[in-house]
Design a protein around this nucleic acid. Sequence first.
DNA 1: ACGCCTCGCTTGCAAAACGCAAGTCAGAAG
DNA 2: CTTCTGACTTGCGTTTTGCAAGCGAGGCGT
Lengths: 161, 161
Amino acid sequence: MPLRPYDQTCSIARTLELIGERWTLLILRDVLLGNRRFEDLQRTTGAASNILTDRLNTLVEHGILRRVPLEERPDRFEYRPTRAGAELSHVLQALMQWGDRHTAGPEGPPRVIVHTACGHATEPVHACAHCGEPLEPDEVEIHPGPGATPEIAAAGVLPRR
Amino acid sequence: MPLRPYDQTCSIARTLELIGERWTLLILRDVLLGNRRFEDLQRTTGAASNILTDRLNTLVEHGILRRVPLEERPDRFEYRPTRAGAELSHVLQALMQWGDRHTAGPEGPPRVIVHTACGHATEPVHACAHCGEPLEPDEVEIHPGPGATPEIAAAGVLPRR
DNA sequence: ACGCCTCGCTTGCAAAACGCAAGTCAGAAG
DNA sequence: CTTCTGACTTGCGTTTTGCAAGCGAGGCGT
């Protein structure tokens, strides 16, 4: 019996089915940092080669990476992020930001994000798409959406304070 | 032999060591939605009870949740997010947003985020903390930070285009 | 021409993690 | 005093992972 997917009508669960396995997000981190070849990924992620093969295939299968031939004779490839893959950088940035705040020692974060356009080291700020104000964790409500299941609809607006 | 942690000087890897296991992010999702009791979490996440116990203990151990007695006789508890736990909502929002865009069917997303302050359904926009402009995936560079290892420092600015 | 190297995997095996069902234990509730 | 509920714990069989070794296609050195 294979390990079941989470099998939930929830965008978080559905996303985790694609990228939630051990090593997958580290692989994506490195691909988005420009580390795109099998051997380099093996070294920088630390994942075993059979696992790396499996994860790369899954990511290609789901349109998050593309396997691109670099040269023929000898055959060499690289794994490039698709548009969808590149959009996962928001997830990685959120993980990095939390880690910077809560797991970094006194020496500070190992890497910083620089906004190319303005040239400054920055942190991603999560703002409301409608009014532009910062979106704090306690200033949002989750409402059932158009694709809600009856259970989600029945739960109504969350969290109930 | 226990499964090794990722053991990397990287905020993403260090964060994933705390919350990267199967079920952990779904548990956090539900706790942040207000589902805070063992039995409810078992039902809404679908995780087996031994796994749920293990994950909750790990989260409490790392200061992401607190185990709060609700009533004595009979003993009942709830798991509440700490400040650090609440900040993980940015990670969950990023996962949800990606899932909404890339895994939702024609019926649309199952849940939507409403910004309480302005009252509108919204999406979190990732903006530059310095200049306020939207932070697109291809408009950032990753530089070595103060806590960089020699290897990270040697890699320099990434990605090299 | 022959061995040796590199890259990108695949295979085999033991160890660890997981899923499920059942059991435990303290305290109501009937 | 039996049953029920919440929050776990235990046992057992399956699945996944980590590690080491091997493979095969194509250079490269001599």
